[in-house]
């Protein structure tokens, strides 16, 4: 039996390992809170990739050219892959995939707030790749340096695939912005609607996250949300200006002294409301996942029957 003293020692060794920059692997000793936090993060992240296919999948059949359709299809397939990498990383800590999916389907699981907004026009596909994948890259690049081996390796793999997502989105925004005045208007409208949700998806302000210190010490969280958000804004505002789009924030200004942009107040009430389930598409997303699960059932049954038949031969 582990005594109190053994536990203290184990925790000390665990922290020393992390401080040294070593990764924690599935069978290594870890504090219960570390394990729980990682299971929560990895499963929420996996769910986000899976639900994230829905807003974009909405436009696959209506993409304006074969080129755009092939690109969007490949991007959505990548997101499915990201979900798979992450579910398998979460499973290394002993959680069951069926259980994780059940939580998603019953609406108990959380996923990124951003995917509860609708994709109203083709320009939204541009805005998502540019802004949503752009913000996700900032977050994921930080997480790739995290202490849990399987999560960090999944992040490295995902980050490699993300930059095409980001670029194809910006390319769509470029084409529209330099197109007819209607097209430019459509780009600006999508930008207006996605900017704030993208800013918010990086998470609440630092003074609003109570466990931050411990998570940073454990390298579960690598960088504060505000700091990632600042970098995202610093990189994105000039990209918007370059294609003649106006950032929908009248307070946005560049501070020459700090070298950073300063944004106006963020509507956190909206963010928490969407997280709670009251965003424009929360119900629709969970319903779509349930239907996909139900409609895909015959495929899984056929696969099982096939496997069974081949076993006998």
């Amino acid at each position: 039996m582990q005594t109190e003293k053994d536990n203290k020692q184990a925790e000390f060794d665990f922290q020393a390992k992390i401080d040294k920059g070593d990764k924690i692997e599935p069978k290594d000793w870890m504090p219960e809170r570390y394990r729980n936090q990682l299971v929560r993060m990895m499963s929420q992240h996996a769910h986000s990739e899976i639900v994230g296919m829905l807003p974009e999948g909405n436009w696959i059949t209506r993409a304006p050219s074969l080129r755009r359709k092939a690109i969007l299809l490949a991007k959505v397939q990548d997101e499915a892959g990201h979900g798979m990498y992450l579910y398998s990383a979460a499973e290394t800590l002993g959680v069951d995939r069926t259980e994780m999916l059940k939580q998603l389907h019953t609406g108990k699981a959380k996923y990124s707030s951003i995917f509860n907004y609708p994709t109203l026009t083709w320009a939204d596909i541009g805005a998502i790749g540019w802004l949503v994948d752009g913000a996700a890259i900032m977050n994921q690049t930080a997480l790739a340096k995290g202490s849990y081996g399987p999560y960090s390796r999944a992040m490295v793999r995902i980050c490699k695939e993300e930059s095409f997502h980001n670029r194809q989105g910006y390319e769509i925004m470029c084409s529209l912005s330099f197109g007819t005045s209607e097209q430019k208007q459509m780009a600006q409208d999508a930008f207006n609607r996605w900017w704030w949700p993208a800013i918010m998806m990086l998470g609440p302000s630092d003074d609003n996250s109570p466990n931050s210190d411990e998570l940073m010490r454990w390298k579960v969280k690598m960088e504060s949300s505000d700091s990632i958000r600042r970098r995202f804004i610093d990189r994105t505002v000039p990209q918007a200006e370059f294609i003649g789009l106006t950032v929908p924030d009248p307070h946005m200004k560049f501070n020459k002294e700090t070298g950073h942009y300063e944004h106006g107040p963020i509507n956190w009430e909206e963010f928490f409301n969407v997280i709670k389930g009251n965003g424009p598409c929360n119900k629709e997303r969970v319903k779509a996942r349930n239907e996909a699960d139900k409609n895909g059932r015959w495929v899984r049954e056929a696969a099982e029957a096939y496997a069974e038949k081949h076993k006998k031969n």
Binding site: M84, Y85, S88, A89, E91, T92, R97, P150, R153, A154, R157, A303, E304, Y306, A307, H310, K311
Partner: peptide, 10 residues
């Protein structure tokens, strides 16, 4: 990484 499948071929 890992994945689930009903048999080796799949």
């Amino acid at each position: 990484g890992s994945l689930h499948a009903p048999d080796a071929e799949m």
